[in-house]
Design a protein around this nucleic acid. Structure first.
Length: 433
RNA sequence: GGAGAGAUGGCCGAGUCUGGCUUAAGGCGCACGCCUGGAAAGCGUGUGGGCGGGUUGACCUCGUCCCGUGGGUUCAAAUCCCACUCUCUCCGCCA
């Protein structure tokens, strides 16, 4: 009976008030006006409101008549005439309720195509060529020999086993052995300890299967269904901890004084990687299953962009402690995700290929996901609840960190140096050999 | 997997059998006011959210919807019917 429709991505009122700004944002992202139909949204929204006025008028009439019938019954009066009339009105209401529901569904459908509005500080451009380097840390290591790609380093040390990973599961699954498995586990613990003890995050271990509502809040559904592994009972494997952790406070109203809420979670992540068949076929850069430590923040709208700076800084700190050369890229309008208002990528140096590779991505989704998931806070001063801003970022991708360490820290004899920060997590091991 | 019980506002809890002055009783909590040297007690007032209209800021005001979720019956549903979800108790199975 509830006519309110929930998942809207952008604020419909914002589209009503500033349609031109939204249209510009869509073009800046390199999307076509057909792909994200602002005028269509406005049109359907107007129809919806006109319909609501009519049907609510009828409902008002019905409620009044109800009181009247009660009074008449008390006087033992004949109510046939009025009930007959109300029968017709009720039928009409039922029809219109159906119409409203249809229009709501239609509105939701077109709204789902409208992306978040990029922040003013985001460089405008069509794709990654317009990204801006924010800063760079360290120096690329120098080698007296030709550095091997990480898959060769790993296989020669017998710590990565691609053949058996494929035998057990499929291509893009890798078996970690011995010091490789230990390194993976050490990195997870190192990252979690860093973020919980020094960066003020609360540790979470969420479900790794989640339902459709959860996936809808963060925007993976309905648009990216093909990249998700689906299980029975309507559950899906999470592609990142962002999905379950952002949903912790779905349909909740937080207290303003509790913001910012900082969570960090280690989970395995599962991605079908549909449509990336040719890419990164060797090594562990692109896997169907990989481990990731993820940071999630629920922030006050006034501070969310400061929180984004702090979050990317927290991700960078992982690489600094491991001594890995890296740079931070501010993504352009055309390269950032659908839900993001602003996004930094953290890229680590890979000496074998001589390029930087993404190892973390930190986004401020402003109120985009919060509206979807109805995640709000009550202002301490009183007044209506407002939507929080949600942020998420890798802190960082574990498998890619293994790859970076194997390549950057390899010696000419094939052994790999364990960075000091990691040694306590590996039983004092200083060399993988 | 089997059997049973339950889900009502920030919380507790009545109402459901017997549909309609229920715009959900009562209590607790909270906020403000009175009282007080100050406090407690006492007294009084107020106390959710969504959507929409009123020339869209805020405030105000009017309407509508929300008693786990979704359908149905009816002039009218917290209340009757159906399906589903979740919680609790017991049994079975299990790391």
């Amino acid at each position: 009976m509830a006519l309110s429709y929930n998942p809207l991505m952008l604020d419909i009122k914002l589209i009503r008030d500033e349609p031109d700004r939204i249209k510009k944002a869509i073009l800046d992202r390199g999307m076509s006006a057909e792909a994200a139909d602002v005028d269509g949204v406005l049109d359907i929204d107007a129809r919806r409101r006109a319909l609501l006025v009519q049907v609510e008028e009828l409902k008002h009439e019905r409620n009044k008549a109800s009181e009247q019938i009660v009074a008449m019954k008390k006087d033992a009066a004949d109510t046939t005439a009025i009930t007959d009339r109300m029968r017709e009105i009720s039928d009409r209401i039922k029809e219109m309720d159906v119409e409203v529901r249809e229009v709501d569904a239609k509105l939701r459908e077109v709204m789902l195509d409208i992306p978040n509005v990029p922040d003013d500080s985001v460089p405008v451009g069509p794709d990654e060529t317009a990204n801006v380097e924010a800063r760079r840390w360290g120096e690329p290591p120098s080698f007296t020999f030709k550095p091997k790609p990480h898959w060769d380093v790993g296989e020669d040390l017998d710590i990565l086993d691609f053949q058996r990973g494929a035998k057990i599961a499929a291509a893009r699954f890798t078996l970690l052995k011995g010091a490789g498995a230990l390194l993976e586990r050490a990195l997870i613990n190192f990252m979690l300890d860093l973020h919980t003890r020094e960066h003020g995050y609360k540790e979470i271990f969420p479900p790794i299967l989640a339902n459709v509502e959860t996936f809808t809040t963060t925007g993976q559904l309905p648009k990216f269904k093909d990249d998700m592994y689906q299980c029975q009972d309507g559950l899906l494997l999470v592609p990142t901890a962002e999905v379950p952790v952002t949903n912790i406070h779905r349909d909740e109203t937080l207290r303003e004084e509790d913001l910012t809420v900082n969570y960090v979670a280690y989970t395995p992540c599962f991605r079908r990687e549909a449509g990336s068949y040719g890419k990164d076929v060797r090594g562990i850069i692109r896997q169907h299953q990989f481990n990731k430590v993820e940071m999630v923040k629920f922030a006050h709208p006034d501070h969310s962009f400061d929180e984004l700076e702090s979050m990317i800084g927290n991700a960078e700190e992982v690489l600094r402690r491991l001594g890995l050369h890296h740079r931070v890229m501010l993504l352009s309008t055309g390269d950032q995700g659908f839900a993001a208002a602003k996004c930094y990528d953290l890229e680590v140096w890979m000496p074998a290929s001589g390029e930087f590779r993404e190892i973390s991505s930190c986004s401020n989704c402003t109120d985009f996901q919060a509206r979807n998931g109805n995640i709000r806070f009550k202002p301490a001063e009183g007044g209506k609840p407002r939507f929080v801003h949600t942020l998420n970022g890798s802190g960082i991708a574990v498998g890619r960190t293994v790859a970076a360490l194997l390549e950057n820290n390899q010696l000419d004899d094939g052994r790999v140096v364990v960075p000091p920060a990691l040694q306590p997590y590996m039983g004092g091991m200083t060399l993988i050999e």
